[in-house]
């Protein structure tokens, strides 16, 4: 290859990488800009929207869905999907209830049990997907139903209350930040969401597990042929996601002061929607936790704002659905151009 071709080739690739980078930044800017635009729009439309109490309510409403979406992000990045996250959340809440209310054991044990149960179930799903080669959609669809049934069986279809565990409701409803800065009563649930998101962002961008998560979604066979035990790593990702569902289970049960065994179905779709709005590709390999967080916020700002504007409930769902389609279409457009 002579000098001229070299130069042209590298300039061309530099140029195109520059364009792509700008595209990536654009997408994140786009999502963030739409979030800001929604907030501004709703603030102008109703004086009741932009108030500390309402912003806190929006953040609080994001906490459960946000944590689930963070869990879903990891699995989706591997090119998989986890449909069981909603009912797994409920199952973990029930486990916490069994340990704390029925077993009368101390609070930390209950929390550990919920997270541990989540991780174990995630590991099981991961085993079905990685070792037994059951397509993720099917494996986790089955798991979703199994867990739903188990929650009802364990509880006898009755909620378990946390009245005997003092401080349980504080986990999501109290405000540590509010104690320090009274003007900013951020509920603990929101704090948990941001801590979980931060931790996941660290895992995904700075650790071996994270790098393999992206690599699996990018080209699983190439990773396997690099001598990596792909099955083990994939199982680890599902287990991690499961553990995070355990945290979501603690949050929702703390919020409701009870483990409601009939809840959970449908929560997985909200979480996946948030992930997708946040720009993560369902094919895997591309996406960020920050995007997911923005996606989850867009969803709750939208629901909250439309309700404040007294938009009819039927239309609220229509608008939310349209936004999901629009968000993914915008992402497609960007990718075609880049």
């Amino acid at each position: 290859m002579n000098a001229t071709t070299d130069k042209t080739a590298s300039t061309a690739s530099q140029l195109s990488s520059g364009a792509r980078l700008a595209g990536g930044a654009q997408q994140k800017l786009l999502a963030f800009a739409s979030l800001i635009a929604l907030v501004i729009g709703f603030s102008l439309a109703s004086p009741n929207f932009f108030q500390v109490s309402n912003i806190m309510a929006i953040l609080q409403a994001t906490s459960v869905n946000g944590v689930l979406a963070v869990a879903a992000t990891a699995v989706i990045l591997t090119g998989g999907i986890d449909l069981s996250i909603g009912t797994l959340m409920t199952f973990c809440a029930v486990v916490a209830g069994v340990v704390l209310t029925w077993g009368g054991l101390p609070l930390p044990l209950g929390l550990l049990a919920a997270i541990g149960a989540g991780a174990l179930v995630g590991l099981a799903s991961g085993t079905f997907v990685a070792r037994m080669k059951i397509p993720p959609f099917i494996a986790t669809l089955g798991m979703m139903l199994v867990l739903k049934g188990l929650s009802l069986i364990i509880t006898g279809a009755k909620p378990i209350y946390f009245n005997d565990t003092p401080g349980y409701t504080e986990i999501s409803q109290g405000s540590l930040i509010g104690l320090v800065i009274p003007a900013l009563p951020v509920p603990n649930g929101v704090l948990v969401l941001f801590l979980v998101a931060l931790a996941m962002a660290f895992v995904l961008s700075r650790t071996v597990l994270g790098r393999y998560t992206y690599a699996l979604g990018s080209n699983e066979e190439a990773v396997r042929l690099s001598g990596v035990n792909t099955n083990a790593w994939k199982m680890a990702v599902y287990a991690l996601a499961g553990g995070i569902c355990g945290i979501a289970g603690i949050l929702i049960s703390s919020r409701l002061n009870s483990a409601q065994p009939a809840l959970g179905l449908g929560y997985e779709l909200d979480a996946i929607a948030a992930v997708v709005i946040g720009g993560t590709s369902l094919a895997g390999g591309r996406g960020t936790v920050l995007g997911t967080l923005i996606g989850a916020l867009i969803m709750s700002v939208l629901t909250n704002g439309l309700r404040i504007l007294s938009v009819a409930p039927e239309w609220q769902t229509v608008v939310t659905g349209a936004i999901i389609i629009l968000a993914v279409y915008a992402d497609q457009l960007r990718r075609q151009r880049g």
């Binding site: 990018s218 190439a222 042929l225």
Partner: peptide
């Protein structure tokens, strides 16, 4: 079978040695 195309050069070089 050899590359994670969407990832960068450094990641691909390190893919077997992370």
């Amino acid at each position: 079978f050899g590359l994670a195309l969407g990832m960068n050069v450094a990641d691909n070089i390190a893919l077997a040695s992370l």
